[in-house]
Each structure stands twice: as C-alpha cells, then as structure tokens.
Design a protein around this nucleic acid. Sequence first.
DNA 1: AATGAATGAGAGTTCATTCAT
DNA 2: TATGAATGAACTCTCATTCAT
Lengths: 211, 211, 211, 211
Amino acid sequence: MTSAPRTARGARTRAALLEAAEHVFAELGYADASVVRITERAGVAQGTFYLYFDSKLDLFDELVDDLNRRVRRAMSEASAAAPDRLSAERAGFRAFFAFTAEHPALYRIIRAAEFVSPRALHRHYDRIVEGYAEGLAEAQRHGEVRPDLDPDVAAWALMGIGELVGMRWVLWERDAEGGVPDHVLDQVALLVDGAIGRRTAPATTREENGS
Amino acid sequence: MTSAPRTARGARTRAALLEAAEHVFAELGYADASVVRITERAGVAQGTFYLYFDSKLDLFDELVDDLNRRVRRAMSEASAAAPDRLSAERAGFRAFFAFTAEHPALYRIIRAAEFVSPRALHRHYDRIVEGYAEGLAEAQRHGEVRPDLDPDVAAWALMGIGELVGMRWVLWERDAEGGVPDHVLDQVALLVDGAIGRRTAPATTREENGS
Amino acid sequence: MTSAPRTARGARTRAALLEAAEHVFAELGYADASVVRITERAGVAQGTFYLYFDSKLDLFDELVDDLNRRVRRAMSEASAAAPDRLSAERAGFRAFFAFTAEHPALYRIIRAAEFVSPRALHRHYDRIVEGYAEGLAEAQRHGEVRPDLDPDVAAWALMGIGELVGMRWVLWERDAEGGVPDHVLDQVALLVDGAIGRRTAPATTREENGS
Amino acid sequence: MTSAPRTARGARTRAALLEAAEHVFAELGYADASVVRITERAGVAQGTFYLYFDSKLDLFDELVDDLNRRVRRAMSEASAAAPDRLSAERAGFRAFFAFTAEHPALYRIIRAAEFVSPRALHRHYDRIVEGYAEGLAEAQRHGEVRPDLDPDVAAWALMGIGELVGMRWVLWERDAEGGVPDHVLDQVALLVDGAIGRRTAPATTREENGS
DNA sequence: AATGAATGAGAGTTCATTCAT
DNA sequence: TATGAATGAACTCTCATTCAT
C-alpha cells in the first residue's frame, strides 16, 4: 500500500509521475505505456514509481479521475458564462474540443479504458452525464428545451456527438489553432439546437405544409 | 507473407481463427488477447496461426474490416426498407444497436483500435460516414433534411449518438431482448429528427412569433 | 497450464530442466535459485521453462516428489536384502546416508521446503514415515521390536536420527568415500537397536540388579 | 558498521526490531521476510533498521544466536532439576517441545538457515550438542549411560529425535496445551532410554536366553 | 536517533514469432 | 497443411540498501 507523500519532495515526484503518465499514455496507450517509459520521462528510478502508486492500473485510474475533473470544470466554466441555452451549448462544446486538443490524453485514455478499467470508464461518463442531464432538465423547466425530451438519453447522445466530432476534427485533423474549425462548430450548434430546442410548430404542421 | 488458403480445409481453419479471434478480442481486448488463446479456442496449434496471418495485428485489421462490412450491411438493409427519412433513421439505429448487442466485439474492438491500428480505425469510421453522409445529401435533395446542414459533420455527429447510446444501453445495461429499450430508441429518433429534419418555420420565425 | 511433452525432444528438454534444477536448488536453495540460472544450466531459453512447468514452485514440488521416490526406493532395496531387523536398520541408514551424499539436493531442498511448499514437505515425510512405521509394526509382530513401542512415533524419531546425523557427517564433514564413517554408522546402529530392540529382562530387573 | 545503542530509547528500538524480526521470520521465512515488514511491525522507519544492524543477514545471525541461548537455558534448567538421567531426558525433551511451541521461530528459522547462514546454523547445533554430549559423558561416568556409546554421535542422534518429533507434533499438529501429547512424550522417553540406557545383560545374553 | 524518499538490480512470468519436422 | 518446441525480449513489480534531512 502506498501512502500520500509526506514531504514536499515526495509531492513533487508524485506530480512528475502523473504528468509523465498523461503524456506516455496519450502517446502509446495503456498497454504499451510501460512503467519504465513513464519513470524515464519523469526522471526517476523504476522503483520510485511504486512509492506512489500501487500499480500501473492504479495510476491509470487516478489519471482518468483527474482528467475527468478537469474537463468538467472547463466545460461548466465555459457554459456558465453564456446568456442562453444555445450559446451555452456552443460554449460547452467549444471548451470540450479545446480541452481535447490540449489534452489528447483524455480522449485516448478514455477510449482505451474499456478493457483496462471499466470502472474508471463508467465513473468518467457517469459524472459528465450527471451534470449534463441536470443542466438539460433545468433548461426544460425554463422552457428552453423541448419538454418531451428525456434529459438522460439526451445527455448521452450529445456527449456522443462531442466524442466523435472531437475525434474527427481535433484528434485526426485539427486546424491551426488546435480547435475544430468554426464551420464544424457551427454545424454542431445547429444540430444540437435542432435536437433539443423547442419547435415553433408541432410536427403535424409540417405535413400540412408539405401537402 | 501468407497467401489465401488453397484447400477447403485451409479455408475452414482460417475461418475458425477469425471467429475465435472475434470472441477473444471482444472478451479481453487486443493487448490481452494472446495468440495462444486464439489458437486454443480455434483448436489449432500456435504455429498454424502464421500460416494464415502475418501477425496478430494483421488479423486484427482483417477483423475490423470484416465487422465493418457486416455492420454497414445490417444498417443499410434495415434503412433501405423504410418509407421515409425519419423511419429510415429509426430503423438504422435499431439495426446498429441490434448488431452491437449480437457482436459486442465490434464495439469493443473498435474502441480499442485507437492505439492498435489507427489506420483500421480510420477506415472503419470513414466507410460508415461515407455512406451515411451520402444518404443525408440525397435526403437533402428530396427536401427531407434541412438544407443548411453539412452532411459530413452531421454523419459524424449522428454516429456519435449511436456510439454512446449503444455503449450505455447495449453494452452496459441491455434489456431482456438484448436491444435498447423502446423508450430510448424513441428518444434517439426524436433527437435525430430534430437535429436533421426540416423545420416548418426558419429559426428566426420563432423569434418573430415570440414577440 | 503445461502439458506433458509430446515429442522425444520435449521429454529430453524437460528432463534437462529437472536435472539442472536439482543441482541449482541444492547449491543455492530455493530462494536464490532463479529460473534464469536453472535454464542456463539446462542450456535452454528462459521461456522454455514455462513450457514444462507452471512456475518455479511447481518444479520444486515435482523435484521433491521425485527425490522422495528415489530415496525410498534406495532405502527399501537396501533393507530388504538384510537377514534380520538389526542389519536391516543398519543397511537402511547406510543407504540413506549414501543417497544423501550423492544427492545433497534431497537434504537441502527438504529443509528449505518448510516455507516454500509445506505441502510438499508434508508429503515427503509422511511417505517415508508410512513405510517405516509399517516395517516396524511388522517387526513387532515377529518379535523383533519391543511390543510397547508406537511404530509411528518411533518412525519419526528414527527419521530424525538419520536427518541430523546425515547433516553432521554427510553434508558438513563427509569422509573420503562420501558416506558416514563406519564408527558413526556403528553408533547409530547401536542407538537404534537399543531404542527399538527387545530387552532381555524387564526394566525392573535392572533396578534389582543394581541394588 | 553499527554500534551498540547509546541511549535507552535506542535500546528499545533495537529490541523492538529483534522481536518483530522473530515473528516475521517465523511467519514468512528468511527470504520472504522483507526489511519493510520487519520495520513496519516494529513501528519504525526503514532507514532506522540500518542504525542497528548491518544487514538483514546480520539481524538473522543475531536472532539465531539469541534463540539458541534461550532454548539451551530452557532445556538445561528443566533437566537440572531432575533426580536421574531418565527423568532428566524426559524433562529436557519436554522443555524443548514447550519452547518450540512458544517460539516456532526457533524451529522454522533454524531449518531455513541452511542456505541463509550456514555459520549460524553450525553454531546453533554445535552449541547444543556440546552441552548435550558433555551431559552424556558425565552420565556415563556415573554409570547411567551405556559405556560403549560415543556421546557425540548420541547427542546428534537425540537432537534429531527432538527435531522431527517436534516438527510433527508441535509445529504440524499441536495439542490443546501447545505441547506434544503425553503419549508421544512417553514414547520418546522410552526410545531415548532404550537407546542410551545401560542394559542389564549384554546383547549376547539374549541369544543364550533364547536358546 | 530517526525519517522517508530514492535507487536500480533482479526476480518470475508472458508472449509474438520462428522453425524443424 | 499442421504441429509443438523453442526463443528471448519485454513486462510488472519487489527489495535490500543508501542518503539527505
């Protein structure tokens, strides 16, 4: 069993290991990210690793939790400042993409977690969905989101949009500034607004118009 | 370099290996799925593996391509029979979820592919998106999909919805029949319809009405 | 799980590993006898070890059982040829000492087994005692061993004599021929004969004589 | 080089380490008894260990010597109070078994010492034998032990009896009070008495009587 | 006197791959 | 076509010991 560092020096070493791990995991994935590589990058001996983490998996879990905390903060801060729901969504997505660009580790590590640490993976998504769904329910009460929507399902769906669009336009082909192109962000906003926003006329009206 | 099997027996052995691999990969992930386990499950000797595949990675790529072909067929068959765009979407998603339930391998393997074989991963998503985006563009021309939508971005976004909803309601907590609950499917249809469907009145109209 | 070798070559390799292990264990003890050293001595690669044994401990257990079988055979063959109980004991002890001299592994490995594999240790002693106690009981029925003796306790006690005398005069300070000196063997025979042999007169007689 | 503790506090720490070591060695054996575990049990930091002992081996040697002193005292005190040789033997064995029950460490550590510290092992047995053999020689001069016995060989043999009987009935299957069952102790006394006690008539007499 | 961080060699074990049969 | 023996590099993790504080 490892324990929290008791000295400043220990705290520094532990932080160095976490930081190194983020990069190595992001670059190589869990399986290929050996403890040797992590300790080498952190500039400490192999044995030192086990002073602060019980195992490679232990470190992995901690890292996921850490990144989860950070991405949620980034998103909520961004959307909190927005005047209305639509711009809040837009800001939230932009923040998510920006975070992904800056910490590709998040994205890569999460997807790798399926077999590595299902519990960490669960925790990660559940936490994000929880906040997201709450926000949607609140917006429903304010009449900004269509009332017939199940906030939980919607939250998972929207998170999915962020995940794949992020993969495609941040991880695979990012633009110069490291975020998604404006055009893509606009489209996402359009889609999200259409998906959850209130409609002026009931669906039946459309049919009438169409005839 | 391996070559295609020259006899019926060889073809059978090769198929057995592919089948075994699908299960073993789905259960353990790429990293932990050893060649030994695959050959054991296929009932052949270790050396036999290299008669049909150059490497573990080679087999993996082939498997991804194979699954990709199958999932696309399942989805396109399902949506082809639908009378209009909305029910086509619903049918397509239902087919995707059903396929995921029956072949969790697809889902698991794909997500694991990030570090294993980025090229296979790319190919997989690109192929799905390609067909999907074409379908959306076609529907746009028929006036069934809002004209201001970029079919490419939309395709990625919708795929994301399928991916996370599938993870949540098929992989993590499937209902008795192995598919997603009707309620969830309804919600997904609602979201998708809202996201890509034509609106009766342009967004600005809403503002006008509101005043 | 390992399986029995299926070819002659495999059988040879396996035997080589066992033989190497006997020497390495005898020389270094279980803890310091690394798999590397064993495989080096056997002239095979490290990985080959695990083709035939599940673990270092597995090999250890097998070795103990193997040696146990051999030492019991050596002893029983030696004592079977003896005309009476006394010479049978003498022959049995001599055989035990000779075996110990030739296979110091037995002695060393057994004593080390206390923490390594208690089960193997138990098995070893139990098997020896079993045969020994049976022989004593049989001799009791023939009137060659005092009737008030519990063969089981006696067997453990005599085994103890062999163990420590063997340690002292075979392992620590063996004579030129590699066995215990005749003088020591004589003394052991004397002790054993006294311990288990019938007495002419009951103990009380001695007291009477003494007065 | 470590030096003797200069303060009362130091003496206490040292004693705590020794005590902890006895338990940890007894439980895990030398190889698996890590310095970490010993210091943890003693409630001191790892580094502190090397203030009092040069190495793990150093501590081991000291522990063996310490236990040796204690077991010899226990045995000699017990047998000193006995009125005659026979009861002295019985008392000595009883004391040995009792000590073994109370300090399984002695037994376990000694057997483990074969590869760890042959010198400590030698010293241990030699010291016990020395006293034992002297006692036997003295008893011979008083006519209580048969004169044709080599006290040295006899001492090793008797020690062997104690060792294996102790292993079987104290370590493996002790009775409620933690000693060997009375029956076993009786049998041991019988064996020992027969082995070293004077006989009324020479062995040849038995033959004559038999005719 | 005591601490706890740091070391780095070495342990057992796994595994993709090769090769002789 | 198929086998199973063999390889050896790489992995995670442990541990006795040192050292700065």
